[in-house]
Amino acid sequence: MSTQVLQTPYCGLPPAPADLWARWNFDPILISVLVVCAAAYGWKATAARRQGQAIAAWRQASFYVGWAITALALISPLCPLSVSLFAARVGQHIILALIGAPLVVTGRPFTRVENVSNPATKPRGIAPLSAAALFAASIWFWHAPAPYAETFRSSFVYWSMHVSVYGAALWLWASLIDAPPAKAMHVVLAGLFSSIQMGFLGALITFAPRALYTPHLLTTVVWNLTPLQDQQLGGAIMWVPGCVLFFITSMLILWQEIIRSEIAPARANAVSR
């Protein structure tokens, strides 16, 4: 007689509503990684200050706020709630990719110390359209039903999902924030592409005629949702914030480029006179 071993998801078994706020994720490895990364950034900021090229205080604050938000998304009760609800897992991804990642990147953690005082300095090799394509690939892959279900069976796959989505988001936002003027239109196109793909995927999930995500077929009822309603909520969470935020970012960058293109000739004419 064979025995089937059921795998417990990384965030544990689905929580009951009454127990949710007691379900924090105090994984020592995760907490150690989060602390080490924050400490490494602090060391970099200190080194830059000693060299007379200090990272602006507002940028440091942005990094630490973004890193705190990233940590909360991973260790808070949102982790076990994402075992019960697809909407919670999507919300976790949105917090990581659209709130935590841009705030962290604004702190300039990937710029060499000798260049931190130059706001035009960008990490080498960043191509906005390539970054947007990688981010789209990670979002679409991990929200396909089969890979998504696999994250509930393997902690390695679970962290592969989070690392790839968050890493791709960091790369994308690094290519959008403080973009050099020469890449302005590439940045606008990357932002628009990200807006469209997030909106399209969210719409596909929202308007799917049946529940697609098997891990949640039996876990949503205690939250007064059917699996399809949970899926529709998750699709809307992906659709609206992702579509709107990337669109606004693109329009702001386009507006800055228009203003720059108008100011430059005016300054040239003033100098020639």
Rank of each mutant, 00 (worst) to 15 (best):
L13S: 12
I55H: 08
L217P: 12
L170V: 04
T206N: 02
N269A: 14
L204E: 05
I95V: 12
V35H: 02
W142M: 02
L13K: 10
A18R: 12
A71C: 03
L201T: 05
Y166Q: 09
A16D: 10
F141T: 02
A146D: 13
I248G: 03
L172T: 04
A168Q: 11
L201R: 07
Y166R: 01
P145M: 04
T46L: 14
M185K: 12
V5S: 10
S261E: 15
A71E: 00
P215L: 01
A101D: 00
D230R: 08
A57R: 11
Q60A: 10
L81C: 01
G242F: 05
R108V: 03
R50D: 10
S32D: 01
P180R: 12
W67N: 07
I263M: 10
F141V: 07
L13R: 14
P147G: 03
T220F: 02
M185T: 13
T220K: 08
L30H: 01
T111E: 15
G66K: 00
A101L: 03
S62D: 00
Y64N: 11
L212M: 14
V240Q: 03
S130M: 14
F110Y: 13
A45P: 04
G191W: 05
L254N: 11
A144D: 08
H143R: 03
Q231N: 02
A144T: 12
L78Y: 01
I258Q: 06
M198N: 10
S195I: 06
L212G: 04
A131I: 00
Y64S: 06
